[in-house]
Design a protein around this nucleic acid. Sequence first.
DNA 1: TTGAAAGCGCTAACAC
DNA 2: GTGTTAGCGCTTTCAA
Lengths: 335, 335
Amino acid sequence: MPRVRLVDEAREAGLSKTTVSAALNGTGRLSPEVREKARDTARRMGYRPNATARQLRAGRARLIGYVVGELADTPWTFLESPYFARLTGATAATALARGYAVVLLPAGSLQSEWAALPLDAVVVADPVADDRIVEDLLAARIPVFSDRSVEGRPGAHWVDVDATAVVGQTLDHFHAQGARRPVLVVPDSTTRFHREVDAAHRAWCAAHGLPVLSVRAAEPGNGPVIQAVETALGVGPDRPDALLVVAEASPPLVLDAARRIGYDVPGDLLLACVSEDETAVHTEPPVTTLSLRPDAVAEAGIAHLVAVLEQGLRETGGALVPVRLDVRASSVRRG
Amino acid sequence: MPRVRLVDEAREAGLSKTTVSAALNGTGRLSPEVREKARDTARRMGYRPNATARQLRAGRARLIGYVVGELADTPWTFLESPYFARLTGATAATALARGYAVVLLPAGSLQSEWAALPLDAVVVADPVADDRIVEDLLAARIPVFSDRSVEGRPGAHWVDVDATAVVGQTLDHFHAQGARRPVLVVPDSTTRFHREVDAAHRAWCAAHGLPVLSVRAAEPGNGPVIQAVETALGVGPDRPDALLVVAEASPPLVLDAARRIGYDVPGDLLLACVSEDETAVHTEPPVTTLSLRPDAVAEAGIAHLVAVLEQGLRETGGALVPVRLDVRASSVRRG
DNA sequence: TTGAAAGCGCTAACAC
DNA sequence: GTGTTAGCGCTTTCAA
């Protein structure tokens, strides 16, 4: 039993394709009776327009690709990071609300994987340095939306997190709580974000006349980061009095590590993690987090994308999305 | 500058559409020179076939929808669960390898949200009880792939996790380690999986002549589950000697909770969590986990989907995917 | 107010 | 071997 087509239902209703199409789409000038009749017949026959045919006619498929760089080696691990999980969900939801569907693409996918898809644009959530995908997409004249690392390339647009604010807000908060030896833990990755955090940290310390204390985790992921935390907290006679972890590590694990080394949080050590992980709320004490606002990033990105696609917006400076510090007991001096 | 079409490049190469099409698709019988010439011209002009037109011709878009039930109230929170994160990634990767792209759909989405998409099938990862989406899809004659709860409905196919094995393997392991008062914590949800776990637990306890100890968390999510853990471990004079948490809760949080109440793990209490969360490896001691094998579920599901779509496979019994117990120090008696 | 016909870009019979 | 042609199912001028 083949699917009901527009012609089928037109014939059944004794009308023409044109009339039925207009009736169902609410276009054209038709008498109410005819419109009603067409709709009735459609319902009765279970007619559903063929999406592909419509897309062909329309010239666009309202489909956007979504690529994320892999964390560690395994593609898709990214989704296990609360930040990317939320970014992904928020992107899909926002896009859908604007009439665009999102298809998931693995990082490092080849032309052959996405060439068969009618993509209007592609969002590259976290471009991996050596990934060819951005160039390939631009060469295929598919608009790319990514982070600031694509800035300046024709056809590429960006939205990014304000890395300077990340460091500034947290260290200002530590400072206000009396900390004078804050230490930073950040992965030794080539990601633009981590480089910016590092730079912002140096600048902040210089501006405040404090020593630049920082430890780089060998790579992202809980294992290496926890190790780096242990290193950071173990240093010499002058122990740090505050710790900022910018690595999406599990807050309970970081807290446990600090305790194992003999710190009381927040007594001897103020703690804050850049993380979207809700477990931070459930530890004892709850852990202060700095949210990168994946939902806001997604919204800004999709808004930008829609503007470019639908109003042919050409050059814009991109957008820097603000972050949010959620102060909890782990970074508040008891008094 | 409009996009290069097949006709454009045919004219440029001095060939017909047919010839060029055949040359690029590797079909038909063409002289090597002609084929090469066509390919050259295509490359030179930057010709890329229009995906929508191909789909229309082919009759299918090789696009599948992917819907997940929301955890708590917020749609998309699911992605923050390591299980669903991996299931999602594995589904997308497996599907893509088979030539199908996956589009992300929010739970509870209306017809209007997916009707405009040329979906060949839809995967419903975790059907929410009162979600109309499954009926709507089936009514639209779109094949649905989901868990066992759709069993028996025409057009619906399933793959599921073996809930009995989840409970059996873990409790057998506890029992072998000498535990005689294992307690189960499971969310009080209407999810089929949780109901099955509950039933399997009763059956196992009855079969082994042990008391049925269990506590239901008010809902999924770390907060309620940790509370339930506290309740479970606090009970009366006969304290439990083993704890199984089937709720995708954060292993470090569960461990910390047990400690706060005064348990030594694994001294007084053996601990295992059903979880894909890799933080389990990094606690002290590391936490035993039972993996629901989201990657295996995805593979089985997509294999099934492809068989149905491409070989018109009709009735099959569905598949039960095995689970994997990763024994770590938290559930091994010292000594 | 309604209908006939062209055409979106591609592929595959079928003729040459 | 290569080209001509007829659609895939839909929307939309344009004519009646």
